[in-house]
Design a protein around this nucleic acid. Sequence first.
DNA 1: ATATCGATTATCT
DNA 2: GATAATCGATATG
Length: 209
Amino acid sequence: MTCLSLICPLDRAFFSRNPRRVARELLGKILVRDYENVRVAARIVEVEAYLGVNDPAAHSAAGKTARNSVLFGPPGYAYVYFIYGSHYCLNVSCEREGKAGGVLFRALEPLLGIEEMARERAVALSGPRDLRRLTSGPGRLAEAFGITRARDNGADLTSPLSGLWIGTDGSHPGSIRISPRIGITQAADRRLRYFLAKNPFVSGPKAHR
DNA sequence: ATATCGATTATCT
DNA sequence: GATAATCGATATG
């Protein structure tokens, strides 16, 4: 049976809250790329909250710079940064203008445009294990969606007109788990990582702890 | 002008 | 499980 679902964009008020709340509620929502009449879409299954105050791990911790200015702007916009000489990572700004905060996208479950994602990632698709390699990890999902800082930093993620946006199909996510964030050294004990229990696309070797 | 480091990934053993 | 690769942002001289 085919399930033709409409995807409705989230509004700015959704993002105008503290990053913990936004992170938790982003689980089960859908990241969409519309480009040249092709849609690429994937369900959000793992995110991390980065707080505006009292969070040394956040890029906004040392104040506003040219790099992180989106985090200090209005909510619902893409903050894209480049890391380890190879990878882009996608965040969405939270809180209100002047107050920093964001949510990092760590893993997605592919829904539409799987061939396009595979082309962007330059991986061959011959089994379910390969599907996982498309969008499981912050650098991987950014590559699968063709996200770069030049192209997408500052994009309005509440507007389908921007070509990169976040929506909902009205479905209800399963049970949510919380753990410490991955790959950081500062504030490494804080439990600000949110993910869907038992979802195979969650990133990391110890994905389900 | 130069040095250091990182919200990662791929590719080994 | 361990580690090299890789380069932009940032801090410092």
